[in-house]
Design a protein around this nucleic acid. Structure first.
Lengths: 249, 249
DNA sequence: CGTCCGATTTGATCGAAGTCAAACAACTAC
DNA sequence: GTAGTTGTTTGACTTCGATCAAATCGGACG
C-alpha cells in the first residue's frame, strides 16, 4: 500500500476555464472558444488563501487582478489616520483589483473572508491580450464601468438612505448575487462580519445589529449569526426604495 | 470692403490637440506625437453647450465619451423614485462618461454647469484605437480605475466624515484641480450651486450654507455667492482629516 | 469541559444634521 | 423700473443613528 499509484498531476499553473463552473460569469464569457486558450495561457491559477489572509496589500506595486473562484473577498482602503473603509465584497466569478488597473500600486487591500481560491491575471499580460482581443477589451471596459456605477450607487445609498434601507439593499444585492451563482437566493450564510457590513454601509455595528433584529421581529428575515433567511423579499424591496440592483452586482 | 478676404477655414470636425492647452491633461498625454493624428482623426470637436443643456442623458444609447474643453459639467443619476444624486463635477481636461463605457446606455446624465465646450470621442472608434495603441489603452484603464478610486473616496467621505470635513475636502479638491489648470488655487468661482454641492456631499442645502458661513466666521474662507477665496488652506486641510486628494482628482 | 476572547446584541443617552419655515439676495424678463 | 422666480441664508425644532456601557453568545483551544 505504500506503493504510489502513478497518476498524471495536472499542472497547477495551467488553468482550464472551460471546465470552470464560473466561466459564464468570469472573463471567459467575453471570449470565443478559439481564443480561450490565450486567456488560459496567462492565468496563474489556483492559489488558496485562508480566512484573513491578504490577496494583496494597499500601496504595494500593482501586479495582477484576481478572479474569485470560491470563497469571498473584501476590499478596503486604509486612510492615513488609520481608519478602514470597506469598499466592496466579491463573490465567485467577480474580478478584484479593477480599481487599481493602470496604476502603479494597489489602491486597496484585499482580504479573504473565508477559505478562498482565486485565479490571477498578471496585468501586463492581460493588457497585452486585451489589445489583441477587442471582445475582451470591451468586456474589461464594461466591468470597470460597472464598478464605477456600483460605487456611485453605494454613494447614493450612503448619502440618501436610512439604516434600514441600506441593509435591505445589501441583503437584496447578496441575494441576487447568490442566485446568479445557482445558490439559494433566500437562504445563505453571510461571508462577512457585522462589523464589515457596518463599515461598508457607513453605520455603527450596533445599528446593524438593531436593524437585523427589527427585520426579524417584523418577520421579514430570520437571522441567527451569519445564517440568514429572507422570508419576505417583497418587503425588503419595499424597505429599500431603491430596489434591487444596489451596491455591487 | 464687402469683398471677402480669402482665408483657409479650419475644418470644424478636425481637432488639433497639439494646440490645445489641455493636451497635457487630456487623452493626448498618453500618446506619442506620431500617433496623435490618429486620435485627432476620431474626435468630433467643438460642440458647445449652454448652461443647463444636457451633453447626454441617462438611459439613452451610449455613443461617446466627452472631454471638457472649457466650462464645467455635472453628472448625476436619477432614481426610479425621481431623486437625483450628483455623482461628479468635471473640469477642463477631464473625461466624462467613463462610468458607462462598455454598457449599452448612459448610466448618468451630464449637464453643463455653465457655457461649456467639449470634444467628443465616439466609443466604437475609441475602442478600436485603444486596441491599437497600448499606451492609450493603458491610460484608459488608468482613468477608469482612477474614477473608481474617486468614487470610493467619496463613499468614505459620505460614510465617515462630518459636514465640515466633507465641504473642506471638496474645496480642497477644487482648489488643486484649478491649480493644475494654471488658475488660482485660492481664488475661484464655484461652477455649481449650493444645491449641487449639498446633493453631491449628501447634505441638506441649509447645512452647506451654514458651514460656509461658519468657515467664513473662522476666517478660513471668504465667500460671497459662488465667489470663493481660500484664506487658510492649512486650516482646511486640518478640518478635512482626510487631507487633499479627496473626491475627484 | 471550562476558560477566554472576540463578535453580537440590547439598553440609555446625546448630538449632528435634517426638516420646516421664513426672510433675503440675485437674476430675468417684461 | 417692477414683478416673479430661483438660489441662498438664518432660525427653531426634531430625529436618526452614534456613542457609551454592559450583558450575552459562540467558537478556539488548552
Amino acid at each position: 500500500m505504500a506503493q504510489a499509484i502513478p497518476f498524471r498531476q495536472v499542472s497547477p499553473l495551467k488553468a482550464s476555464c472551460q471546465q470552470c463552473s464560473l466561466s459564464n460569469l468570469c472573463l471567459p464569457l467575453a471570449i470565443g472558444e478559439n481564443d480561450l486558450a490565450r486567456l488560459e495561457d496567462i492565468i496563474q491559477q489556483g492559489r488558496i488563501f485562508n480566512r484573513g489572509e491578504h490577496i494583496f496589500d494597499q500601496s504595494t506595486p500593482y501586479r495582477s487582478c484576481f478572479a474569485v473562484k470560491s470563497g469571498s473577498i473584501k476590499t478596503s482602503i486604509i486612510t492615513e489616520s488609520g481608519e478602514e473603509q470597506v469598499t466592496g465584497f466579491f463573490m465567485p466569478g467577480e474580478l478584484v483589483g479593477l480599481d487599481s488597473i493602470g496604476g502603479e500600486h494597489y489602491a486597496c487591500t484585499a482580504k479573504a473572508l473565508e477559505r478562498t481560491s482565486v485565479c490571477e491575471f498578471p496585468i501586463d499580460r492581460l493588457e497585452e491580450l486585451t489589445g489583441k482581443l477587442p471582445g475582451l477589451q470591451h468586456h474589461m471596459y464594461h466591468l470597470m464601468s460597472q464598478e464605477i456605477q456600483n460605487s456611485h450607487q453605494l454613494a447614493m445609498l450612503l448619502s440618501k438612505n436610512t439604516a434600514e434601507e441600506r441593509i435591505a439593499a445589501l441583503l437584496l444585492s447578496l441575494s441576487s448575487r447568490f442566485q446568479r451563482r445557482r445558490m439559494s437566493p433566500t437562504n445563505f450564510s453571510l461571508p462577512m462580519a457585522r462589523n464589515d457590513i457596518a463599515n461598508f454601509l457607513g453605520l455603527a455595528v450596533e445599528t446593524v445589529s438593531r436593524v437585523f433584529t427589527r427585520f426579524q421581529n417584523q418577520g421579514i428575515i430570520k437571522a441567527r449569526g451569519r445564517e440568514v433567511e429572507l422570508l419576505d423579499i417583497e418587503a425588503l424591496q419595499l424597505v429599500s426604495r431603491e430596489f434591487s440592483r444596489q451596491c455591487n452586482n
